[in-house]
Structure formats: structure tokens, C-alpha cells
Simulated assay, not measured.
Amino acid sequence: MRDSFLIPVLALLALSACQPVPPAPAEPAPEADQCGATGYRGLIGQPRTVLDSMRFPIGTRTIGPSDAITSDYRPQRLNIEYGSGGLIEKVSCY
């Protein structure tokens, strides 16, 4: 009977010696909208021809479905992509 009391006491003592688990490292914050793409998201779904009368920041790329583009990453560069139907499909920074 004395052994049945001793086992839970020893288990509690063993648990009290455990160290707390450190918190997981925080995930990095998502990158900010460095090129201002959020302000141009209203263009999605509109015909590509609306771009002809607009002004964009220097370096903005208008990319068609068969256009060759460089693969260098520049988060401050605005990219406007349109599909084969001539509608704007994506506005993003890269």
C-alpha cells in the first residue's frame, strides 16, 4: 500500500523537474507591397486596352501570354499580366 502512494509522488517530482518548452520561432512577416500593386488590383478583369491611357511607375511591365521576360526578382517593380483573351489577370510585385 505504501508503494502505491510513492509511485504518484515520484511521478509528480519527475514532472516538476521538466523544463518548459520554448515557444516556436515567429514566422517572418509577409513582405510589404513594395510596388503599390494593391492600388492597381481593380484592373483585374478589365481589357488590356485600358492600360494605354494610364500612367504607371517607371519600370512597370505589361506582360502578355507569350511575352519573354527576365527572371530577375525586383519587389519594387509593378507587373501587370494579361491573358490570351486580352483581359488583365494579375497585378503583382516581382
Rank of each mutant, 00 (worst) to 15 (best):
M1V: 14
R2I: 11
R2V: 13
R2D: 09
D3I: 11
S4Q: 11
P8R: 03
P8Q: 02
P8V: 05
V9E: 08
L10C: 11
L10R: 07
A11T: 09
A11G: 12
L12Y: 02
L12M: 12
L13W: 05
L13D: 01
A14L: 14
S16P: 02
A17K: 05
C18N: 06
C18S: 10
Q19C: 05
Q19K: 14
Q19E: 11
P20W: 02
P20Y: 03
P20T: 01
P20F: 02
V21L: 14
V21W: 08
V21N: 10
P23D: 03
P23S: 02
A24Q: 09
A24K: 10
P25M: 00
E27H: 07
E27I: 01
E27F: 05
E31F: 11
A32E: 12
A32F: 01
D33I: 00
Q34A: 13
C35Q: 00
C35K: 00
G36V: 00
T38R: 15
T38Q: 15
G39M: 03
G39P: 11
Y40C: 00
R41I: 06
R41C: 03
G42L: 02
G42C: 01
L43C: 04
L43R: 01
L43F: 01
G45W: 05
G45F: 03
G45A: 02
Q46K: 14
Q46H: 08
P47V: 08
P47S: 08
V50F: 07
V50L: 11
L51K: 08
L51A: 12
L51E: 10
L51R: 06
L51T: 10
D52L: 15
D52M: 13
R55M: 11
R55N: 15
F56M: 08
F56Q: 09
F56K: 05
F56H: 09
P57L: 04
I58N: 15
T62W: 14
T62D: 11
I63W: 05
I63Q: 01
I63K: 02
I63P: 06
G64L: 00
S66I: 10
S66Q: 14
D67Y: 10
D67L: 03
A68L: 10
A68I: 09
A68C: 04
I69A: 00
I69D: 01
I69S: 08
I69Q: 07
T70L: 08
T70W: 04
S71T: 14
S71A: 13
Y73V: 11
R74W: 04
R74F: 03
P75T: 06
P75K: 04
P75M: 07
P75R: 12
R77S: 05
L78N: 03
L78P: 03
N79K: 10
N79T: 00
N79P: 02
N79S: 07
E81N: 13
Y82L: 07
Y82W: 15
Y82T: 08
G83N: 14
G83C: 06
S84W: 10
S84V: 12
S84T: 13
G86E: 07
L87I: 10
E89A: 09
E89V: 11
E89C: 04
V91N: 05
S92H: 12
S92G: 14
C93R: 02
C93M: 01
C93N: 02
